[in-house]
Simulated scan of single mutants.
Amino acid sequence: MMHPELESDDYSDFAERRVLAAPVELAGERLDAALAKLLPEYSRSRLAGWIKEGKVSVDDAPASPKTRLWGGERLAVDIQPDPAEVAFAPEPVPLEVIHQDAAILVLNKPAGLVVHPGSGNWSGTVLNGLLHRFPELKGVPRAGIVHRLDKDTSGLMVVARTLAAQNHLVQQLQARTVKRHYLAIAQGLVPGDGRVDAPIGRHPRDRIRMAVTGTGKPAVTHYRVLERFTGHTLVECRLETGRTHQIRVHMAHIGFPLAADPVYGGRPRLFSPEINLALQDFARQALHAKKLSLVHPETGKTMTWKAPLPEDFELLLAALRAEHGLDADWDDDDWDDGDDDGVEVTYVRD
């Protein structure tokens, strides 16, 4: 089938403009079906999306996927880059780097920042920021990222700066020698310390969620009660494994979902107006990666970093304590009972 291109222009807001004359043999065809034949290198769904976004015109007029062609029309298509193809581009994303040397970086990630590009978040991620600030990371798979935090989980994560360091860290993660401790606020009164050993996989009906399932991968979470309030409990969670949403899924599985968790929070519970307002203001799962400990890939020395609670977490804790009539006498630095004897510890301060 002949479909002569009339012109090809370069525009700043899209990769390429393709302008074609609709062949007479496509008379009666819908615009989306016709473009699928004229531009077979692009999927029909992608072409239909461009039409809906106003990236396609027929005789210089807006069109819809259902627009019928009669032959001879001037079709202009503003070709949009595939998000997956441009995801690994450097961007000036602000990053709080709390430790850096020739082998590793340690970041204190804020809530709301996505770690790795993916569906719905193809730019503005930790990975994009790493490539901008540390260009050499383009030579390391995934820009050196070896583990992730959920978008709305704050706290510490390590990044490798070399292939050797990345391999070393991945081996540590597999051997479960990287220690990751989190602070979480759970709904309900957790009766005591415990351990959850339950496999995690994709939810059988909702594929964007994870769930405890017999066909999932092994997952182990240890939890310890630190402080109880009227209807919530502050707990420390320690990961043996690193499954997607692991703490959130495991705590929900045992009946104590994390406060303000929009995915695994379960049915709304009745709290005082003050606590309801505090939870609305918090607007994310109450989870913070507080402590990270690992063996340095080059020196062999065990190093530990601790990050303070972010302001929103502190405000939620203050509201819970006030409702329960508690003073804020819990020491943020002593939450892990000083288990760092003989280990180099770096405290991150605001």
Score class of each variant (00 low, 15 high):
residue 128 N to Q: 15
residue 129 G to W: 01
residue 132 H to T: 10
residue 132 H to P: 12
residue 134 F to W: 14
residue 135 P to V: 12
residue 136 E to D: 12
residue 136 E to Y: 02
residue 137 L to Q: 08
residue 139 G to P: 05
residue 141 P to D: 12
residue 142 R to H: 08
residue 143 A to R: 02
residue 143 A to T: 05
residue 143 A to K: 15
residue 143 A to F: 03
residue 144 G to N: 04
residue 144 G to C: 05
residue 144 G to V: 00
residue 144 G to K: 00
residue 145 I to L: 07
residue 145 I to A: 02
residue 146 V to Y: 00
residue 147 H to G: 15
residue 148 R to L: 06
residue 148 R to S: 07
residue 149 L to E: 00
residue 150 D to N: 13
residue 151 K to F: 11
residue 152 D to V: 01
residue 152 D to I: 03
residue 152 D to K: 05
residue 153 T to D: 02
residue 154 S to Q: 08
residue 154 S to H: 10
residue 154 S to Y: 06
residue 156 L to D: 02
residue 156 L to K: 01
residue 157 M to L: 15
residue 157 M to N: 04
residue 159 V to K: 01
residue 159 V to D: 05
residue 160 A to Q: 11
residue 160 A to S: 05
residue 161 R to N: 02
residue 161 R to K: 14
residue 161 R to C: 05
residue 161 R to T: 00
residue 162 T to I: 13
residue 162 T to L: 09
residue 164 A to R: 11
residue 164 A to M: 10
residue 164 A to T: 12
residue 164 A to D: 14
residue 166 Q to P: 15
residue 166 Q to L: 09
residue 168 H to S: 13
residue 168 H to L: 07
residue 170 V to E: 15
residue 171 Q to L: 11
residue 171 Q to G: 10
residue 172 Q to L: 11
residue 172 Q to D: 07
residue 173 L to F: 15
residue 173 L to W: 13
residue 173 L to H: 09
residue 174 Q to R: 15
residue 175 A to N: 12
residue 175 A to F: 07
residue 175 A to G: 12
residue 175 A to P: 12
residue 175 A to L: 07
residue 177 T to P: 02
residue 177 T to Y: 01
residue 179 K to L: 10
residue 180 R to E: 03
residue 181 H to P: 12
residue 181 H to I: 11
residue 181 H to S: 13
residue 182 Y to N: 00
residue 183 L to Q: 02
residue 184 A to Y: 03
residue 185 I to S: 14
residue 185 I to A: 09
residue 185 I to H: 06
residue 186 A to S: 08
